[in-house]
Simulated assay, not measured.
Amino acid sequence: MSRPDAVFTVNAVAFAQAVADVRAVRDVVFVQEQGVPVDIERDALDPLSRHVLARDAQGRAIGTGRLTPDRRIGRMAVLPEWRNRRVGEALLKALLREARELGWTEVTLHAQVPAIAFYARQGFLPYAERFVEAGLEHQSMRLVLGAVNPVLRRDAGLAALLGVIEGARRQLLVYSRDLDPGLLDTAEAMAALRRFGVGGGEVRVLLHDPDAPRRALAPLIGLSQRLPSAFAFRAIEEPVDRDYASAYVANDRGGWYFRALGHRFDGETRLDDEARARQLRAHFAPVWERARPCTEYRALGL
């Protein structure tokens, strides 16, 4: 971090010693900002949980989170003036380290709906139905630690896609039948791809059927025309390649989302598996070389 006022540390703390700091942050975020009653915000799980605390350069508490005995991350809170400075991400990673040290193979959480994308970037996937807790809409999410995470429905597929996009360093590879309606045309995916492209990333897309996205006015084609240096499309024409029924997204930092049947959302994902990501990149490269550039996308006026 380049600015002194953006320097912070995150450490595990004993609740008994840090209770005042933990509650000071949570009172601001949950009680004052979100209107959660104090008797709901403070519960019997606090003394039984593992807590992490973020402090600024002067030692003031600026963020906190906890890991409960039922293997759930919760009470994630960052003071308003410290948001969008990666404090929440650092807190979440610290809690995941705690979970791994405990030998846990899975953790869950109840994400407030606006925070779903934040947790997706760390590999969490939605499950079950949304529900209201303390007057706020929530979504249950799950992360399998150190193993493949099953993707069972569309919203989990979207979370997996966002995790792979956001985790990419310089290159993202997309192998798709028809630009995956319901995934690659969502506002969330488009925003993530735009950020990646504007930031200097390269997206290569292999398609079985380039005509279907064009007829559907797929928004990704329009985005590629505005950012031509970031996006490239090629159409798969070789019979040996067209027999491949799967679809996937892979990045250059070990993240991937694979679907055995490319027309379905269900599949598997993991964000820290370089071996599998390398296999997918190795499959993609020769097909890309054999495929035809989609020059019709450059000429399309949307």
Rank of each mutant, 00 (worst) to 15 (best):
Val205Asn: 08
Leu162Val: 07
Leu184His: 04
Leu220Ala: 07
Arg154Gly: 10
Gly146His: 04
Arg154Ala: 15
Asp209Gly: 10
Val203Phe: 01
Leu193Ala: 11
Asn149Cys: 14
Ala212Leu: 12
Glu166His: 13
Leu193Arg: 01
Ala168Glu: 02
Arg142Ile: 11
Ala192Asn: 06
Leu179Ala: 11
Ile165Leu: 13
Arg194Glu: 15
Arg194Ala: 15
Gly197Met: 10
Ile221Glu: 01
Glu188Leu: 14
Leu206Ile: 03
Arg195Pro: 05
Ala147Ser: 14
Arg215His: 09
Gly199Ala: 14
Ala212Glu: 09
Gly163Asn: 06
Leu206Thr: 03
Glu202Ser: 14
Ala187Ile: 10
Val144Tyr: 06
Arg195Ser: 15
Leu207Met: 13
Asp178Gly: 08
Arg214Ala: 15
Leu152Ala: 15
Leu179Met: 13
Leu158Tyr: 00
Asp178Ala: 15
Ala156Arg: 06
Leu217Tyr: 02
Val174Thr: 05
Arg169Ala: 15
Leu161Thr: 13
Leu183Asn: 05
Leu206Phe: 04
Glu202Tyr: 01
Leu223His: 01
Gln171Glu: 15
Ala212Arg: 12
Tyr175Trp: 13
His208Trp: 01
Leu161Phe: 10
Val198Ile: 15
Ala216Asp: 11
Glu166Cys: 14
Gln171Pro: 00
Gly167Phe: 04
Ala168Asp: 02
Leu220Arg: 03
Gly200Ile: 09
Leu217His: 12
Asp211Arg: 09
Asp185Pro: 13
Ala187Cys: 10
Pro150Gln: 09
Val151Thr: 05
His208Arg: 13
Leu206His: 02
Pro210Gln: 06
Pro219Met: 07
Met141Pro: 09
Val144Ile: 13
Asp155Thr: 11
Gly222Trp: 01
Ala168Lys: 03
Arg142Ser: 13
Leu179Tyr: 00
Pro219Glu: 08
Arg170Ala: 15
Asp209Arg: 10
Ile221Leu: 15
Gly163Tyr: 00
Arg170Ile: 03
Leu223Val: 07
Asp178Lys: 06
Val205Trp: 02
Arg142Tyr: 05
Leu193Trp: 00
Arg153Pro: 00
Ala147Glu: 09
Gly157Thr: 09
Arg195Val: 12
Leu223Ser: 06
Glu166Leu: 08
Arg170Val: 08
Leu145Arg: 06
Arg142Leu: 14
Thr186Lys: 09
Pro181Leu: 08
Asp155Val: 06
Pro213Lys: 07
Asn149Tyr: 02
Ala218His: 15
Met190Ser: 14
Asn149Met: 07
Ala192Asp: 09
Arg215Leu: 15
Ala168Gly: 11
Asp185Lys: 03
Ala187Tyr: 00
Asp209Tyr: 03
Ala160Arg: 01
Met190Gly: 14
Val148Thr: 12
Glu166Phe: 04
Ala192Phe: 04
Ala191Ile: 00
Leu161Asp: 04
Arg195Ile: 11
Gln171Lys: 12
Leu162Gly: 06
Glu188Thr: 08
Gly199Thr: 01
Met190Arg: 10
Val203Gly: 10
Ser176His: 03
Arg214His: 06
Leu223Met: 14
Leu152Gln: 11
Leu172Trp: 01
Asp211Asn: 08
Arg204Thr: 04
Gly201Met: 07
Pro219Cys: 08
Leu158His: 01
Met190Ile: 13
Val198Gln: 13
